[in-house]
Structures are given as structure tokens and as C-alpha cells.
Simulated assay, not measured.
Amino acid sequence: MATQLAERDSLTELGIKLISADNHINEPRNLFVDRFPEHLKDKAPRVIEGADGGEGWSMDGKTPPKRTYGLEAMAGFDRKDYRISGLRYEQLRTGNYDGADHLKDMDLDGVYASVTYPGFTPAFYTNPDKEVALTGIQVYNDWILDEFQAADPKRLCGLTIAPCEVGIEESVAEMRRVARKGARAMYIPGSPSIPYNHPTHYEPMFAAADELNLTLCMHRNHGGPPDKTDWDFYQSDKVSIGGIVTRYFSCIRPFSYLIFTGVFDRYPNLKMVGAEVDCGWAPFWVQTLDHHWEIQSSWFDVKLKHPPSDFIGKNLFTTNVDDYAGYQMIGTGLWPWLSSFTMFSSDYPHSATIWPDSRKVAAKMIEGLKPEDARKALQDNAVRVFGFQL
């Protein structure tokens, strides 16, 4: 481990091994071209040059990408040099796609372990060719487990991807396949074509996740068909600051729907994560969940065995980057569940990343917190949600 981990700071004094529950990768440029079967080679996504001189992903290998590498690969750049696009693949830090080098960048950041979310691969959710979509997801899943996570499974948890938009039967089969290979968590779409409150559609997937102890993770509203009312349109690489801000609240709807379908009563061990949404908004949300369950439950057809707040920090979790407001709320002690609800992250290598200063930011965030609350938010929650070994 890097020298930074040995420095005397509040985390060291508390015996905390800092865990980032939301890092990212950018897939190796030849991942799909090299691994697609021969009859699908011409449909394999590949990195090609765009009109701006940068490089980015093309789903069909022919159409130049609308936006090349940029915001998703800013680690190592000065903030004044941040750009939405225009980078070439060789300008990305090798920690974007190499597990051993990712660990080195974690060491520079003073981070012991990390969960890695996918980069381009969720684009397969909207690919109309189901064979291509399933093949691409399976290729990614094999790579993230067999090569990236394999660099050190104790410190890396690579998210595999559930092919929900291909079909639930295919998702369950893939969940069982990757669980045998060592998967501990799976990515699911933030904007599914069928909402998660559907009474039956996702039931086999939730049952399999509960059985296999696979945590299900959404990242904001990414993945799945786009909301046409949104300012941003990720499928065509349209991004705005307003869209970035509003996505911090994107898990309120799916989390609320999931609670009131009774899924966590049926599957009490099921864990779900909303990544990069922070937690400062949560006290009012949880207050509202319980309030309306108390006053409205006489007419609602689903009867929960527990108050909605009982599922917070037990079944439902978020990750935060530098949510000082949320951690101040933890410090008040008014919402005891809040320190169990959220997990720290560095968001490496995206434009919102605090790398390589995660340790410094985390130390500042836990000022005034009880030691047990600091340990939950920075370490313990991630251990129980993602199965890390300390």
C-alpha cells in the first residue's frame, strides 16, 4: 500500500480502511472486437476516431461517436482542463481498464478497496439486437471478473451487468453464471423499460439476487431507454450541468416504488444500491415514506410487514462523493439510520472525482461524527453490502 495510507489522520486513528463504493472503468478498446464470435464481429462495438480528433465508442463500427472520451476520464487532469470530449484512448490513465493499475491509483488515493461500475457497456441495454446485447454483456462480465477483479478480489469488486432489457430469464441465468465465477454484485438499469414496481416482471430476478447474495446496483438514471423529458440524453451523449445536479435525486422514485411493492418484505436479505446520489436529501424522504404509509395505508393494496424506514440501511443504500451536508446530518444524531444508509466513494475517474484526495475529503467529512458512524459510512457499510475482506 502507498505511504499515504500510513499517514496519521483521523481515519488511521479510527482504524478505518477507506472504501470507495463507486469507482468506474473505461473498457479496453478491443474488448468486444477481440471476444465477439465470428458471426457477430461486424456488430462488435469498437473505439474509433471522432470528428473532434478524440476517440470514443461506436456501437456499429461505422458511425463515428457523437461524443468522444472526456468527462468519464478526467482523473489526472487539472479541473481547468476538464472537457466534455476530445480525448484519445492513450490519454486515459491505465487504471481505467487495468486492474493492477487501478489498484495503484487507489493506493495514491489512500483507498483500500473499491467497487467498479461499467463505462460504455450499459449501452447494450438499448441495442435492438438481443443477441448482440446479451453477447456484449457476457463479454464484459467475463472480463470484469476474470481479469479486472482478479487483480485482487479482496480489494476489488467489479460489477457485472444483468441483461434485464434482453429478458428476465436471461438475467437470472446470467446471475447464476457470474455468481459461480465470483461476482458479488450486479448493475441494473437506472431507467428500465418496465418500471421496477411491476407486480411480477422482476420477481424471478429479485428472488435470484436474494438467493445468491448478489447486491443489485443502479447508477443514477443511467442504463435503459432515456426519459424524453430529461434535459440530458445520454444515448446521444447530450450532457448538462442541470442534468448532472438533478440526477442526485434519481433513486427516490425507484426506491420508493420498490419499498411499496413489498419486495423487501418478501426478500429480507435483498440489497440494492443507488450510486452517486449522496444522502443529504434522505431525512425528508424517509420522513415522508413513513408519514404517508401511516395515513394512507388503509386503501393501498400492499400491506407492508414493516414501516418503510426499516428498510433504509438494511436493504437500501446510496453512495456519496463529497456530501458534506449529508454527513453533518449524520452528526446531529437526529436520524440514527442515516450512517447505515450511505457509503463513501471517490467517483474515479469521472469529472466529479475527488481522486487523489479522497482521504483528505473523507477526513473532513467525518469531523464531529461519532467513531461508529464514521466507520459505518467509510468502511463497514461497504463491507456488508459488497463482501469485502478487511
Rank of each mutant, 00 (worst) to 15 (best):
M1Y: 10
D9M: 09
G15V: 11
I25Q: 06
P37D: 05
H39T: 06
K41D: 03
K43Q: 12
V47Q: 00
D52L: 02
G61H: 06
R67P: 08
Y69M: 09
G76I: 01
R79Q: 14
Y89V: 05
Q91W: 07
D98L: 08
A100H: 12
L103H: 13
K104W: 06
G119Q: 08
Q138I: 12
D142S: 08
W143R: 05
Q149F: 11
D152G: 12
R155P: 00
V166F: 03
E169W: 06
V172F: 11
R180T: 02
I194S: 08
P199E: 14
L212P: 01
L216D: 04
D230G: 06
D237L: 10
S240G: 10
S240M: 10
I241Q: 13
I244V: 15
R247T: 13
R247C: 14
R253H: 04
Y257S: 15
I259D: 03
T261D: 08
V273C: 06
V273N: 01
A275W: 03
A275C: 06
E276C: 10
C279Y: 01
G280S: 07
V286K: 00
Q296P: 03
K303W: 12
H306F: 07
N320P: 06
N320D: 09
S339H: 11
F341G: 02
T342G: 01
H350E: 11
S351D: 02
W355H: 15
W355K: 04
V361F: 07
A362S: 15
A363G: 13
K370Q: 13
K376Q: 13
L378C: 12
